[in-house]
């Protein structure tokens, strides 16, 4: 006698928990009833992401690197599930390797991106990278590798993220969220909203507490999103959906320059 499998309910990922949309609505994607995140879900996610920022950015770079590496470990144990929800094993392996690659950047960034500046005066002057804050990500395709390629640089730089998952292929994003939830990523550091892009993207772009917006996966009216983002001088990032480089991390970093006199 065959056993009836227990299905997973695909919900949102906000503040380390997996709530349903406050709207109670779902939409049909990949044969499942996927949570159709609302404006309020997004608002909650941004608020929680902001709260999580101090702890995540305050962590030592070494620790942050270990947490990101732990994400790769969790993904590795869920290879089959991730493969089933993406284009397959190849995409999953590349995604995992990419997370590992970025994990190693956490405690090297400041050395590569920062500098000690030889100013013409009796001052010690240095520049260090710092996270920019809450980053909105419109996840590009392919649904896993695209998301990981955009999320990992945001995360490793110490930012927190509110991700709008691929509208057509949202399930793998929630699967990834489960990896994050079990990987010691503090609650609220990454939040994943599934739902309709046209509803969610403008909300994310216009939110005054979202400091940067990754539009690599924007499939709608990019110009409109950028216009909305101008209201709080958002950093608009057009990156690569399948690339890895420290320059992708740098796009989500602020540079802080500190001066101090040198005197006896």
């Amino acid at each position: 006698m065959s056993r009836l499998p227990v299905r997973k309910t695909y919900k949102l990922f906000i503040g380390g928990a997996f709530p349903r949309s406050e709207s109670g609505r779902t939409y049909d994607a990949e044969g499942a009833n996927v949570a159709r995140g609302s404006r309020k879900d997004l608002r909650d996610a941004v608020r929680i992401a902001r709260q999580a920022g101090a702890g995540w950015s305050g962590m030592t770079a070494y620790n942050r690197g270990q947490v990101v590496y732990r994400v790769a470990e969790m993904m590795e144990t869920r290879r089959a599930e991730l493969a089933g929800l993406s284009s397959g094993a190849d995409e999953v392996e590349r995604a995992i390797d990419r997370v590992v690659w970025y994990a190693g950047w956490a405690d090297k960034l400041a050395q590569v991106v920062g500098s000690a500046n030889p100013v013409a005066g009796p001052y010690f002057n240095f520049t260090i990278p710092e996270p920019t804050g809450v980053v909105g990500i419109l996840a590009p395709e392919p649904p896993l590798l695209g998301l990981v390629s955009r999320l990992a640089p945001v995360l490793v730089g110490g930012n927190t993220a509110v991700v709008v998952a691929s509208e057509a292929h949202p399930l793998v994003a929630i699967e990834l969220a489960e990896c994050l939830a079990t990987a010691d990523v503090p609650p609220g550091v990454v939040n994943v909203i599934t739902g309709l892009r046209r509803e969610l993207a403008p909300q994310l772009a216009s939110h005054m507490d979202v400091v940067a917006l990754d539009v690599t996966g924007a499939d709608g009216d990019l110009a409109e999103l950028e216009r909305l983002g101008a209201e709080n001088v958002k950093r608009i990032v057009r990156g690569k959906a399948d690339g890895q480089s420290p320059y992708e991390i740098e796009a989500f970093l602020e540079l802080k320059t500190v001066w101090h006199p040198i005197g006896m």
Binding site: P122, Y123, P261, I262, G263, M264
Partner: peptide
């Protein structure tokens, strides 16, 4: 007055 301190560079 308070003993205070002096920043050499700014003083100069």
């Amino acid at each position: 007055p308070r003993l205070g301190s002096i920043d050499a560079v700014a003083l100069e």
